[in-house]
Simulated assay, not measured.
Amino acid sequence: MSTPDSRVDAYIAKSAEFARPILEHLRAQIHAACPEAEETIKWSMPCFTVDGRILANMAAFKAHCAFGFWNREAGKDGGGDKGGEAMGQYGRITSLKDLPPKKELQAQIRQAAELAKSGVTRVREAKAPKPPAVAPEDLLTALSANPAAQATFDAFPPGKQRDYIEWITEAKQAATREKRLAQAVEWMAEGKSRNWKYEKC
């Protein structure tokens, strides 16, 4: 077994009481199935690597833990991927009962280790594109009264149009919406995007 990382010890120690046995269990199963796995901290959470490649990571939150393999192909044969429920592939882990039995979990860890060693790149699921944002009537009316703003809005890619549309339509009060609408038209008349303050020149 590789040398334990004291930062992982500290992470587990400061985690909620319910989370400690879960994290200790996951850590033990990784080293049992893949003794050469190295411990480190990445993205402020315990991470395990093999041959310099990321194998898996785990994290503790206020009410649940999360655990997942870097390559999501690992573990799919052992019950599917619950990644939509929380970070990782095992959903919200609140007790050891939420994890596969030791033998099954270790088999998944070994599979993940083989994928990492082989250099297979992480598989990312393609996200469906968002539908085009529909500009509200008050924005269309305001733009039609300001040719410069209209030209800027029409030239924007869908994402930048969406930034303005969502900023205006998410206003909870009529006064806020009117203020945002006026500001949006003013900025667009100057050729500015919604987040122009944060964009690099």
Rank of each mutant, 00 (worst) to 15 (best):
N146C: 10
K200I: 05
E85M: 13
F67D: 04
T152R: 04
T152C: 12
K160G: 00
K14E: 14
K172W: 01
L55P: 07
R162P: 01
A126G: 10
A175H: 03
C201Y: 05
T94S: 13
C34H: 08
A184V: 00
A126Y: 04
A56H: 07
P157I: 01
P131M: 06
S118L: 12
C201E: 11
R180Y: 02
L105C: 12
R180A: 01
D5F: 04
R162N: 03
M45L: 13
A189E: 09
P101L: 11
K62C: 05
K14L: 04
G159P: 00
E166L: 07
K117L: 15
G83Y: 14
G75Y: 09
T94I: 06
L99K: 06
Q111E: 15
K127T: 11
D77L: 12
I165S: 02
E137M: 08
A148Q: 11
S44R: 10
D77Q: 14
G88M: 08
R20N: 03
L96K: 06
S44V: 11
D51N: 11
G78V: 06
I109W: 09
I168F: 05
A28P: 03
A148Y: 03
D154Y: 00
A126Q: 15
A28W: 01
K76Q: 15
R110V: 10
L143C: 07
S6Q: 08
I22W: 08
P100L: 10
A107S: 14
E186S: 10
P157C: 07
Y164I: 01
W167E: 03
D5N: 12
I30Q: 04
K97N: 13
D138A: 07
Q89T: 13
V123M: 14
E170T: 08
S95E: 15
W43S: 07
E178F: 00
L96Y: 10
P4N: 05
A113D: 09
S144Y: 06
A151G: 03
R180L: 03
S15F: 08
A86Q: 14
A60K: 03
F67H: 02
E166Y: 02
K200E: 12
S6G: 01
P35C: 13
T176L: 02
D81V: 13
E36S: 14
L26W: 02
S118A: 15
H64M: 06
S15D: 07
K172G: 04
L181E: 01
A189Q: 09
S193E: 12
A13H: 03
K130L: 15
R162S: 02
I41Q: 11
Q111T: 07
R72K: 10
Y11E: 11
